[in-house]
Nucleic acid binder design. Structure first.
Lengths: 333, 333
DNA sequence: TTGTAAGCGTTATCAG
DNA sequence: CTGATAACGCTTACAA
């Protein structure tokens, strides 16, 4: 038990070497760059710091300022590339702003537990990509929700209604009229609003989805695989389906492959998110691109700039767009 | 600029309420649980803390102890699911041990820059999944390398030689003799030793890889796609190839699809890592499973338990295993 | 067994 | 413009 940790060079060391008092060093190095300190002194301090290889102790600074220069990111499932993209976007701006990113996988501990742990680290802000309906979070550091509008908490949104509408229009344009849907039974905005827009766009075109072509599934490959397998086992089955996210769509693709069905000839499939994997499957997945990295980046920027309090100012939803690839085609019958 | 951050309840508050001195509280709550303090007092403190909802300030504790109860993880590319698995494994044990995980993407800042930033956060340890030959890291907090043995730094390894050998044996067993290889020109153990074992296992069977069937590529989908496209454009081309990781293999699969070639009929493909995506492509990828999560978990455990100093004791390499799926078949000519 | 005092490295306040 | 001095919340030696 060594009470004296192998600390590096401190402001004291720099002060001694520069022949000034210790707070002066602090002022020069980190305090407001506008601080009035003689240019000569300033230069001397700079040099001393450089020569000694001074690196500020972020923990000490954090204790003093009551913050940690770090952001937390809580995601429902690290295995979904969408979450990775959100994280990646957040990481990018965090790195730019000299902030750290604390990664929290909600599969390991509950969101509440994670929030508590982050709070005791004086976290500057937390980005939450909700897994279930995130009505009231238990405490409030600076919080930003991804793709989940809330009265209490600021959020960063993509235009998921357009996502649903684009998918519907695309399928209609290809001549499909026997259309199915696979998605989770979820209250989350991202799913709910997309689904609603999809359904109502079809309805405006005079088409309603048969109830047995409307399937619920977990938002995962496995879920999509099962739901789609059941769907295509029906006679008749739809000529096209829209899946609430790419994982489900990829599962559907697998289900078709397993039955020897050809996509898009026997079934057109549209996904949502445009995760990396969408371009890796064969045929490549037609999908609605959701700017996940940008969502993460924006959230991080809001938190770091302390703008998360301007709740009214939740900015415009980010646009989504249809990416036509290989899993959709003109209806063949 | 409010110097008084909205700090929560502190040890002082608890002390006041329990009617004891502040250090006593510290002793009871976090100090060695063996500390001799009267059971009555102990109970009183516990109660007070509970009633006040006391949560220790990890930053303050960190400053005092010269550590941060956090681990850094530096990965070369967040887009590789292998890295995600390493992170995920580390996150699991970190969460169990009340440690945080600071995520560092080497695409955003250099490894050196990340290490510096982590050091000034008094990081307890850093897990590094190296991108390039990581000869001498610039400084030394507790460090563990993933899949890269080093004289100076402890590491956690998978048995990549077996990986190469298993791939070779599998292809030989299927009757292939015209065999190719696609992998990066890298000095990293994970690639180098696997490649060597692959080549020498073939040689033992009397087979040497034609030089034009031995392709270099970036360890990415795009790299694999290009290299494989060039490879299958040759006449004759091999009947089977081994790809140094799954991303490359998936790229190869795409190249085949683009040319209208059928896998595994026209070309057998073996990948390496067994990333999540390997099961999503069609046909599913035959690959060598590398226990990425377990690598991450072990590394985290070493760091947290402070065992990283027992360098001699770098444990046995973790076993790998062949996962036979749909991209390999008996040779057809 | 418990309370007192000191200090971790910083930043902030306030005299000089 | 600069230098003491006092926090920030916690742990740990040491004294009572």
């Amino acid at each position: 038990v060594t009470p004296r940790p192998a600390a590096g060079v401190t402001v004291h060391d720099v002060a001694r070497r520069a022949g000034v008092s210790q707070p002066t060093v602090s002022l020069v190095l980190s305090g407001h760059p506008t601080a009035r300190v003689a240019p000569a002194t300033r230069e001397r301090v700079r040099r001393a710091a450089e020569e000694l290889g001074y690196r500020p102790n972020v923990v000490a600074r954090g204790l003093q300022q009551g913050r940690s220069f770090a952001l937390g990111v809580i995601v429902p499932d690290l295995r979904n590339p969408f979450s990775i993209d959100v994280i990646s976007g957040a990481e990018r701006v965090a790195a730019e702003e000299d902030h750290a990113v604390l990664l929290c996988d909600a599969r390991e501990r509950s969101v509440t537990a994670h929030l508590g742990a982050l709070e005791s680290r004086l976290i500057d802000g937390v980005i939450v990509e909700p897994a279930a309906y995130a009505a009231s979070l238990p405490f409030s550091p600076n919080l930003v929700l991804i793709n989940e509008p809330s009265a209490d908490v600021p959020s960063v949104l993509a235009d998921m209604e357009s996502a649903g509408r684009l998918a519907a229009k695309h399928l209609l344009q290809l001549g499909h009229r026997a259309i199915g849907f696979v998605g989770p039974a979820s209250d989350l905005y991202r799913f709910r609003s997309m689904e609603r827009a999809f359904v109502s766009t079809l309805k405006e075109a005079g088409i309603s989805i048969r109830s047995e072509w409307f399937r619920r599934s977990a938002p995962s490959v496995h879920g999509g695989e099962q739901a789609a397998a059941a769907l295509v086992a029906l006679a008749p089955h739809p000529t096209a389906i829209f899946c609430a996210n790419d994982l489900i769509a990829i599962g559907a693709l697998k289900a078709c492959a397993a039955r020897g069905m050809s996509v898009p000839r026997d079934l057109s499939i549209v996904g949502c998110d445009d995760i990396e994997t969408a371009r890796l499957v064969n045929p490549e997945l037609t999908t609605i691109a959701v700017p996940a990295r940008e969502l993460g980046a924006r959230a991080a920027r809001m938190l770091i700039r302390g703008l998360s309090h301007q709740r009214a100012k939740t900015p415009q939803p980010l646009p989504v767009k249809l990416i036509e690839r290989g899993t959709t085609a003109r209806v063949s019958r």
